[in-house]
Amino acid sequence: MLNIKILTFVKVNNFGAHLQLYALSKILKTMGHTVHVFNFKLKTKKISLPGRLAQIVSTFHFYCFRKKFLPYFTKECNTPKELANATKNSDFCIVGSDQVWNAELTKNDEHIFFFNFLPDKVKRIAYAASFGSPEWKGTDLQTTKALLTKFTAISVREKSGAKICKEKFELEANVVLDPTLLIESYDELKIKKHKTNELIYFKFLSNAKIEKDVKRIAEQLKLRPVALNANRLKKGFIYRPFPSVRGWLSSIKNAELVITDSFHCMAFAILFHRPFIVLPGHGKRYTRIINLLTELGIENRFLINPDDLFTSKLWHSSINYKNVDANLVVLRKKSIHFLEQSLKKQ
């Protein structure tokens, strides 16, 4: 049994961040290891008072999920020295998953997520780390390379990430599944299945044209359009703000159709065998979506041009989940094997 600590994005109001941490820690505990999480929070932009008030409910929901389903956190760490002190008695430290190597998100804390605070004796692994972009956005190539050479094993979530490691840092990296896809069942979370007759629309970036097409699709399919976790009322949609983590999962699991630009919303649509369509989101961050869909043989579920949403008739086509599951089993075994073998290295 090993003592393992995970460094990832924590205490953020984000469904994917919480669920990927839940999944990775569960897999590690299933292997018989003890797991804790570094209590390090990224510095974020200040939010206006109305914004903070609007987030109170969400913050409470995520807090409840962490308390019930996530491993114990270390003491709060705000500096590299405090993080180093928190590594006491650790056999391995794992960074990932999520966009932990996206310098546009980590900014001045960029190298913390390459373990610049770890004593040399502590072994380190990257699991499904993501650069968030096909290009490296970092600030100091030599420092980053020096830190990466200390890793026992490196894996990334996208092929573009493996290419960055090879071309920028002259290091090999395995491509593995996002942790959420390592788990076959989320029964522990008690997400009930029931009939809703809903089209779930979960999108980070608002777009009036897309919203109009979503409503047209819902009308054609005789479904109720639901704006999931929307930060404002959308005309013609059922408004479902501030869902809990389990409420968010339940909406996806019971949807007749899911339309999203979110990687993790797509991932759970796949796990729950729901019909879905994925649209582009932030800039070029959709490479992770295309990579996974291609591996699963359903790359046609991604629409590079959102204007084609209605005319593509993709919402009228089904997904052969028998083939998807067969591909997923192979990828899952490969990813878990990477973790198991990496944790055996001395």
Rank of each mutant, 00 (worst) to 15 (best):
I277G: 06
L141C: 10
G161Q: 01
T34L: 12
H264D: 01
Q99G: 10
L148H: 03
K235G: 11
K334F: 07
S90N: 07
N291H: 10
S317N: 13
Y127K: 11
K222V: 07
T139H: 09
L171G: 05
L249W: 00
K67S: 13
L28Q: 01
K190M: 14
R246W: 05
L28R: 05
A17V: 06
Q341F: 09
T311P: 12
N13L: 13
L292T: 04
S317V: 14
T74R: 10
V258G: 03
N14G: 10
N39W: 00
F204E: 11
K212M: 07
I304N: 13
R285N: 13
K150S: 10
A230Y: 09
K107Y: 11
H194K: 15
W136N: 07
G247W: 08
H111K: 03
Y63I: 04
V35Y: 10
H33T: 07
Q346S: 14
Y63N: 14
L223Q: 02
H61C: 12
W136E: 01
T180R: 04
S130E: 02
F263I: 00
I200N: 01
A103C: 12
V176K: 00
K313R: 15
A128I: 12
D120H: 14
T287K: 08
D98I: 01
D213K: 07
N300I: 05
R332I: 10
S130W: 00
K166W: 09
P179V: 05
T79K: 12
Y286I: 00
S250H: 08
I238P: 08
I200D: 00
V37F: 10
Y72I: 13
R52K: 14
A129L: 09
L177G: 12
D109F: 10
V12H: 04
N300P: 07
E172Q: 15
P119A: 06
Y127C: 13
K121W: 12
R288I: 03
T87W: 03
L2G: 04
R216F: 09
N207G: 01
I4S: 05
S250I: 06
E172Y: 13
N89F: 11
K193G: 08
A126W: 02
V37D: 02
F310Q: 05
L279H: 02
K29V: 11
D178N: 06
G132A: 05
E135F: 14
F302I: 00
T143M: 09
F38H: 03
K333D: 11
Q55I: 08
K222T: 08
